[in-house]
Design a protein around this nucleic acid. Structure first.
Lengths: 335, 335
DNA sequence: ATACTGTGTGCCATCGTTGGCAACCAGATG
DNA sequence: CATCTGGTTGCCAACGATGGCACACAGTAT
């Protein structure tokens, strides 16, 4: 690949002048500029980013670190969102998936430091707390779907409570008064928050909380649709069964669908169902299409990069910002 | 971040000596080496990759370009596979999704050239042909799930014919003699190849090809599960209906499931179903779990990086290699 | 004593780019 | 004619690392 030197020689000017043309400095005669530009075109010259970094200290690189996010179905949009925002700033994204192995994580962060990333985005599969000490002090970091134990890093997390409330209110708004909730049994922000949202929605409608309507699926979560199937079946066999069911996620809604059908009931006429996550491939394809709460991962990825680059008004103040992102309702046909 | 100069100063040696320690050159006294190593540790020094590249010409960077792959549910594994192989070689992966926009693609390739990637991997969502001219001559490229019009670039593609044959034979092996195939209507390698595989399997079993059993879903493919639902319903209403159905992909199998249930038939007792792609979130979660053909995307990603780095015996000969990867059968419970 | 070998170390150029500084030139001003 | 101004251009150092070369200092062979 051609270098600036070759361009200078061929255009009969000094390297400095080519550099000026490249960086759109003033004080270059028009004729000269055009000659240089022509040679650049001819040689298909592009300035070497590494060399440029050497002088300017700007690597134009962002590290995107995930625990298992890239293995999760709905999180590819997170990467795409981040990539798009990076693109707008002419930055490139390094992708590294640690598989939750601390050793890999350390090495990954080191590799990113080696390449002088301008910042690191760390995204987790599940909404959870992580250790501040994993991250170097001297590189800006943004957390996505997680937060630092000491809250010292800016983070972006979904509004679990709001989402849970919205899901439940959607059912209540349609006249359902017995609303079931199939949750997962874990002390994490997602199940805890969505349950809180569920309670708030009931309270808003003046409906007492009924323990019998709330179920918790235990780990392991592999056959989660099947566990949910059993769970929903028992819910529907109650003497006073729910007519609306809020499922912790879309995969579980799939199991709920099977249970409702098995009970010879129709969706949404007899039982309405709301999911969570908006996994398109499931939610939009099953019959009837699933009304669900979207985890706005694309926006979260985008926002992460924008925060990192200190874009405009979302620049950080003294206290690291904790962005809580609203989860919108995606209306389909299961309610 | 500390530089080699600071390390040298603090250790009371020259820069050259630190460099020797870093690169494990001989001729460094043990005492000196240990002193240097200690300082490196103290300062948490890591050599600057950009500066290193300047001298050595090795950027340790690989570009991973996709059209819309990252937007496709089952392709995150492709990225993970590539990333893992890259990791083993201490390389970092640049991820860039073009959304199939030619302008974006050109800029993306340029950005990667700017950063001196050692090679580019280009992966497509659908198995298809692409133009060689999109790619610069001077950077090695590997194509995944696509191939160059002039076959001048090494490529990795799934064995569509073999996959189609395997899917069909799986049904035949279980005694099904009337086997339907719900294909998509497109002149692309995937539908064409899988159909060819279907025909070969029938031929192997001495069963004549029956046009009435092969259906083609037209674009647009958004509500593809619903189209398949209608299609399978009509298939099951034939006078001599199929007892086994091979669906072009797993999403379509979801529609087929609905149609079979609607017809008051059981899976797999009355109608057996085989999918394609092995989209875990669907195939493993629906009821009964779907037997399907896996698109080995993880391995394809891995192989792409390994080929690029010329690992061992998969180094290229004179003719660019066209790797055709077998698609294994994933046995679940729908057959 | 001299030459030779080999270990340990440092100096300096180099990679491709940018930015400070200085120099050149033409035209305007005193 | 000397000085000034401002546009245009070039020289050179610097960024952080590596590698060729040279040199100092042993110990060994002649």
């Amino acid at each position: 690949m051609a270098t600036i030197k070759e361009v200078a020689q061929r255009a009969g000017v000094s390297i400095r002048t080519v550099s000026r043309v490249l960086n759109e400095h003033p004080h270059v005669a028009n004729a000269t500029r055009e000659r240089v530009l022509r040679v650049i075109e001819e040689l298909d010259f592009r300035p070497n980013a590494a060399a440029r970094y050497m002088r300017t200290g700007q690597s134009q690189l962002i590290g995107f670190l995930t625990d298992e996010v890239a293995q999760n179905v709905f999180s590819y949009d997170l990467i795409i969102g981040a990539q798009q925002a990076a693109w707008e700033h002419e930055k490139l994204l390094f992708l590294l998936n640690t598989g939750n192995d601390p050793e890999v994580e350390i090495r990954a962060i080191n590799m990113m430091r080696d390449h002088q990333v301008e910042g690191i985005i760390y995204a987790t599969m599940y909404h959870r707390e992580i250790k501040r000490s994993q991250f170097p002090e001297d590189i800006p970091a943004i957390l996505v779907n997680c937060f630092a134990d000491d809250r010292s890093l800016p983070s972006i997390v979904p509004d679990e409570i709001g989402g849970g409330r919205l899901a439940t209110e959607t059912l209540l708004k349609h006249g359902h008064r017995r609303v079931g909730f199939v949750n997962v049994a874990a002390k994490e922000p997602a199940p805890l928050g969505r349950l809180e949202g569920y309670r708030q929605a009931l309270a808003n409608y003046g409906i007492p909380y009924d323990e019998a309507l709330v179920r918790f699926i235990e780990e392991p979560f592999e056959g989660i649709a099947t566990s949910t199937y059993d769970c929903v079946l028992s819910l529907l066999q109650m003497s006073d069964p729910p007519t609306g069911i809020f499922c912790f996620n879309d995969m579980m809604a799939l199991g709920a669908y099977d249970a409702v059908r098995k009970s010879n009931l129709r969706i949404p006429e007899d039982v309405a169902i709301v999911g969570f996550d908006n996994v398109e491939i499931l939610a939009a394809q099953i019959h009837p299409p699933l009304t669900t709460i979207e985890l706005p991962v694309f926006e979260m990825g985008q926002l992460a990069v924008r925060m990192l680059l200190g874009e405009g008004d979302i620049a950080q103040g003294e206290q690291p910002v904790q962005h809580v992102i609203a989860c919108p309702l995606i209306i389909r046909r299961s309610v």
